[in-house]
Simulated assay, not measured.
Amino acid sequence: MAEIAVEVAFALPGHQAVVALSVPLGTTASEAVVLADLPGRFPELPAEAFEQPDLGIFGRRLREPATHRLRAGDRVELYRPLTIDPKQARLARAAEKR
């Protein structure tokens, strides 16, 4: 069976991982995340954090990661939930400057 090279990327503020994989043609974005074994690379997070994360490819969010078939060279990115609303963060930074 033909294989393609892809990457799976995840980052925390102080730690990141980009995992290079060779996967069978037809592998989905969700399947690649499982193959990357991110819970083993980020033991400080609960394994559930990687079960159904928002996924994207090169900064473009995927609507259906469980059915999106990867192409050679794709980089699957896992997006963490926001800890603060971006508008609130801007307001807080502006208030500090005053």
Rank of each mutant, 00 (worst) to 15 (best):
L38T: 02
M1A: 14
D74G: 06
R93H: 12
T67F: 06
E51V: 14
R75P: 01
A29D: 02
Q88G: 05
F50W: 04
F42M: 09
P65R: 10
E48F: 04
V6W: 13
A2W: 08
A20L: 07
L12Y: 00
A94S: 13
L25N: 13
L35D: 03
L35Q: 12
P65A: 05
A95F: 01
V23L: 00
P46M: 12
A17H: 02
K87V: 11
E44G: 07
L12D: 01
P53H: 01
V33S: 12
V33N: 06
A32L: 04
E77V: 00
A72H: 15
A49Q: 07
L55W: 10
V33A: 08
R61G: 00
A92V: 00
S30N: 00
A49P: 04
P43M: 01
H68A: 07
G14V: 13
G40C: 05
S22K: 15
L55F: 04
P65H: 01
A92I: 02
A5F: 13
G73K: 08
A32M: 03
A94W: 13
A32Q: 10
V19F: 01
Q52H: 10
A49Y: 05
A47W: 08
L62W: 05
L82I: 06
L70G: 10
D54V: 15
A94K: 14
D74E: 09
A47R: 11
I4M: 08
Q16F: 10
E31M: 06
F10I: 05
L78C: 02
L55G: 07
R61M: 13
E51G: 12
R90K: 04
L21G: 04
I84E: 13
A17Q: 00
Q16V: 08
G73A: 09
P86G: 08
R41I: 10
A95R: 14
T67P: 09
R98S: 12
G26H: 07
A47H: 09
A95W: 05
K97G: 05
